[in-house]
């Protein structure tokens, strides 16, 4: 399975609303303080990942091609 996309978080903007983790529990887990820890995005979750990016209340998430 190829993993061509990855999420990137701006930790300054992120205030831990955690919408992203609700939408993408397979990719995003929360640390004990409620801030997201990201993993690579598999292809089949790409559309959910895009929704997580668009729905982030502080626009702290971005999705970009993995290097």
């Amino acid at each position: 399975m190829t993993v061509p996309w990855r999420l990137r978080l701006n930790p300054i903007l992120c205030t831990g609303h955690a919408l992203c983790a609700e939408l993408l529990p397979e990719v995003i887990v929360l640390d004990e303080w409620g801030y997201p820890i990201l993993s690579p995005v598999p292809d089949e979750l790409l559309s959910l990942a895009r929704r997580a990016v668009a729905d982030c209340p502080t626009l702290a998430l971005a999705i970009e091609p993995a290097p």
Partner: peptide, 12 residues
Amino acid sequence: GQCGPCTFGLPA
């Protein structure tokens, strides 16, 4: 005090 993991993680 800008990023959560640092703001909360370092004191912890």
